[in-house]
Amino acid sequence: MSELLTMCIEFFKTGLFAVGGGLATLPFLTQMQENYNWFTAEELGNMIAVGESTPGPIGVNMATYVGFSSFGILGGICATLSLVLPSLIVILVIAKAMNAYQNNPLVQNMFSFMRPAVAGLIAAAGFSVMKIALFRQADTFLASINWIALILYAILVVLMYLKPLKKLHPIVFIAIGAVAGILLKM
């Protein structure tokens, strides 16, 4: 029981200090793996692969997995809630303040500088996903291109811009991707 509490505290700390989302939780998990015997380095590797390719935020996936594999279903729930709690509190406080200051010119200026930069940040995140999905390890640039993936990518982008398909739910395209992956043996 006391170990379950220790794990909750560890995940609370992770939620409090992992800034920036995505894989920002990873250094904390590596540390956890070294300090406690809740999971091995190999399991952590598997978990990243699953977390990257199953729905949901990776941090949450990791917490659920680690909690479940060490302490069962209760562990999974506790670890996830501990991870989420700090940001819930911090954001509620900020959201309250934002309602009051939203129309302040200083705050508006700040956001007018941040929005184009965040567009660039998201482009960068897209770039890193593309590197994994459309390219593979190789010596030359040409050899590293995964042509099947690249062509599938081009077809999907064109489909998304076609008028009648534009309004389709993103899950439709994800399903198309999954079926194409199986049929083309990617």
Binding site: V118, A125, G126, L134, A149, G181, I182
Partner: peptide
């Protein structure tokens, strides 16, 4: 194997979805 293949395809679809979103973002904010 087919689970791995499906995920490889899903990752490509995710790339395409992000591309369309990024283009939209740039149009409205840059």
């Amino acid at each position: 194997v087919w689970v791995q293949n499906a995920f490889a395809g899903i990752r490509v679809a995710v790339c395409a979805l992000i591309t369309v979103s990024v283009v939209k973002l740039f149009k409205s904010n840059v």
